[in-house]
Computed example of a mutant assay.
Amino acid sequence: MRLEKILSGPQVEISDYRASDREFCTEMWFHPENGRYLSDPDRAHVDDRFRQALDGLEDNKFGLYCVVRLKNGEPVGSCCLFPDGDGSWDIGYCVHRQYWGQAIGTETVSLLIDYVRSRGGKSITAEVAKANVPSNVLLKKLGFQVEGEGSFSKYNMPVRYDSLLYKLRL
């Protein structure tokens, strides 16, 4: 899937992921601190199956993979959206650690909310590790409500996180 246009906010723009974004994104996702609460593995646990999945992100038929950039074009994060067919969309997001605390995550999720709303979406869901305090605060600030609890594991690693399942009704 592809965005029909660049999503633009005061600080950032969200555009389709391209193969040329892979190095930036994997450095961020696989970093022990930056990717701590993602389901992605650290670099040591990436296998051929995971590499093959990375090779097709720009052409994924089931969802949108995007890169978040400052207005000057510098990449600062990533995000993804997956429609489920009944009007609900699931989102994920990651901000590069160099930009933590600068409202990049809030602006990114706000742009995703606007995008889903413009597509006629009825709700947005997100799963966040309970231990990921900044992300839990961010979602609550934007009106998401906890709908349940769950857990997830990091791919190919013996790391499991208890999680909160959030929902925003549009």
Results as ranks from 00 to 15, higher is better:
residue 1 M to G: 11
residue 2 R to V: 06
residue 7 L to N: 03
residue 9 G to N: 02
residue 11 Q to H: 13
residue 13 E to N: 11
residue 18 R to Q: 14
residue 20 S to Y: 10
residue 20 S to I: 11
residue 20 S to M: 13
residue 20 S to Q: 14
residue 23 E to D: 15
residue 23 E to Y: 11
residue 24 F to H: 02
residue 25 C to Y: 06
residue 25 C to S: 14
residue 26 T to W: 15
residue 31 H to Q: 08
residue 35 G to R: 05
residue 36 R to G: 02
residue 36 R to Y: 14
residue 39 S to H: 14
residue 41 P to H: 10
residue 43 R to I: 15
residue 43 R to G: 13
residue 48 D to N: 15
residue 49 R to G: 15
residue 49 R to T: 15
residue 50 F to P: 02
residue 50 F to H: 14
residue 52 Q to R: 13
residue 53 A to G: 15
residue 54 L to Y: 05
residue 55 D to R: 13
residue 57 L to T: 09
residue 57 L to N: 06
residue 59 D to G: 13
residue 59 D to E: 13
residue 59 D to R: 14
residue 60 N to T: 12
residue 65 Y to H: 15
residue 67 V to P: 04
residue 68 V to H: 00
residue 68 V to K: 00
residue 68 V to G: 00
residue 69 R to D: 01
residue 69 R to N: 00
residue 69 R to Q: 01
residue 70 L to C: 08
residue 79 C to V: 01
residue 80 C to K: 09
residue 84 D to S: 11
residue 87 G to M: 06
residue 90 D to T: 14
residue 93 Y to S: 04
residue 100 W to Y: 08
residue 100 W to E: 11
residue 100 W to D: 10
residue 101 G to Y: 00
residue 101 G to R: 01
residue 102 Q to I: 00
residue 103 A to D: 15
residue 106 T to A: 10
residue 107 E to M: 04
residue 108 T to D: 03
residue 109 V to I: 10
residue 109 V to S: 03
residue 112 L to S: 06
residue 113 I to N: 01
residue 113 I to Y: 07
residue 115 Y to Q: 09
residue 116 V to L: 05
residue 116 V to S: 05
residue 121 G to M: 04
residue 121 G to R: 01
residue 122 K to V: 09
residue 123 S to T: 11
residue 125 T to Y: 09
residue 127 E to A: 07
residue 128 V to H: 04
residue 129 A to S: 08
residue 129 A to W: 03
residue 129 A to Y: 02
residue 130 K to P: 06
residue 131 A to K: 12
residue 131 A to D: 10
residue 132 N to P: 05
residue 132 N to C: 06
residue 132 N to V: 07
residue 137 V to T: 13
residue 138 L to N: 06
residue 138 L to C: 04
residue 138 L to R: 04
residue 139 L to M: 04
residue 141 K to E: 12
residue 142 L to C: 06
residue 142 L to H: 02
residue 142 L to P: 00
residue 143 G to R: 02
residue 149 E to P: 02
residue 149 E to M: 11
residue 151 S to D: 11
residue 151 S to F: 12
residue 152 F to W: 05
residue 155 Y to H: 13
residue 161 Y to S: 08
residue 162 D to E: 15
residue 163 S to N: 08
residue 164 L to K: 09
residue 167 K to P: 03
residue 167 K to H: 08
residue 168 L to M: 04
residue 170 L to F: 04
residue 170 L to V: 05
